[in-house]
Nucleic acid binder design. Structure first.
Lengths: 193, 193
DNA sequence: CACCACTAACTATGTCGATAGGTAGTCTTG
DNA sequence: CAAGACTACCTATCGACATAGTTAGTGGTG
């Protein structure tokens, strides 16, 4: 269901083609919900067949064409409904912590290397997100500017604020992972002193 | 692949039946990797057919029987190999943060309620894990005691330490989520005057 | 005008996982 | 000794995801 609502979130702002959406999933929404195009195209068809989207054939060049989707009223209602419905929490499935729980089976050097990789991975994410927040704050985000142009003035502050708030959440997650992995490195040293 | 290795992690300590394993997935390993029995039984068969486990029919009562699995040398090697191999990081799929990013579409009260539910959910987890750490620290964890009884003396400290370390990681995640959700409540108040 | 990156859309296959069942035997206890 | 909870194992179905393709048109560059 989340893919569907990620698509709604993009399409309520302006109509897009499957290809446009797929590109968004490599950047903006992709930071909180990843999806390959092989999932996007069929989902759009399904949403259309359920009356939540309407697709329109648009000529593209002399012979080409593309299909642009926009959200119907029923679609908007479905999106709002999802927004107002409490999440169901899925049970944990966390390979990094699974591994950590049985680290006594790993070679200490391999364990160290993996914790360093964990730190590097999350440091990379942290950097990306800091950059995103900076872009939003100084108005240089193309994605957000298109979004704001289609948002009533009264809601613009909210739109920006919630984007920043989201990235801040991702940043605290990354910081927690980094701190945890650093403690892990110390622990390995202590246990293999 | 993680399910497979979660099973290894349990089975390297002592042989178990599918049912025993399924119960473990409701408590210990289940905290980092959830799996229903409908996934466990077929996976055990698959691992057996690949020579990583060996199953043995064991009589149970006058007419009943059960199938107990133990890890083969090939299985141990596969587990150690996984332990020493760096993780591949899956791209994010985080419904809570996806929703947060588009909170301008939600009713403020519904949004508040969801953030409160987020806090409650993670507070519950936090309590559970604090309790787990306490159990490990004062030696009252049945799971861990069985594990330690089958662990060479030199590795016992490590075994406990890595379990605690894992729960500490889960606790920092939960704390980060709680702090983030609290900031969210304040933000909603600010934006909705 | 040939090349090539990009736009556009879709298919096919396999595994993973959620959900919801079913069957059969055991053990405890009122 | 019957009821009910628990042990034990298994199947069937469906949607979600990963991975790896295919086909066809567009538009700019050497």
């Amino acid at each position: 269901m989340s893919l569907r609502n990620a698509l709604f979130a993009l399409l309520v702002v302006e109509p897009m083609t499957g290809y446009d959406l797929h590109k968004q999933f490599e950047s903006s929404v992709g930071h909180v919900w990843h999806a390959p195009d092989s999932q996007i195209y069929p989902e759009l068809r399904r949403m259309e067949s359920e009356g939540l989207l309407e697709g329109e054939e648009i000529p593209w060049g002399p012979r080409g064409k593309k299909r642009q989707y926009h959200v119907t009223e029923a679609g908007k209602a479905a999106f709002r409904n999802w927004m107002d419905t409490p999440l169901e929490y899925a049970r944990t499935r966390d390979p990094a912590h699974l591994k950590a729980a049985y680290l006594e089976w790993a070679d200490p050097d391999a364990a160290r290397e993996q914790l360093r990789a964990h730190i590097e991975h999350h440091t990379g994410l942290l950097g990306q997100w800091r950059e995103k927040v900076r872009e939003i704050e100084d108005g240089s985000s193309a994605m957000l500017n298109r979004r704001l142009a289609n948002t009533p003035e009264a809601d613009r502050e909210k739109t920006s604020a919630y984007k920043i708030y989201t990235y801040e959440g991702l940043m605290s997650q990354a910081e927690a992972e980094i701190a945890w992995a650093r403690r892990g490195l110390k622990l390995i040293d202590r246990l293999n002193g």
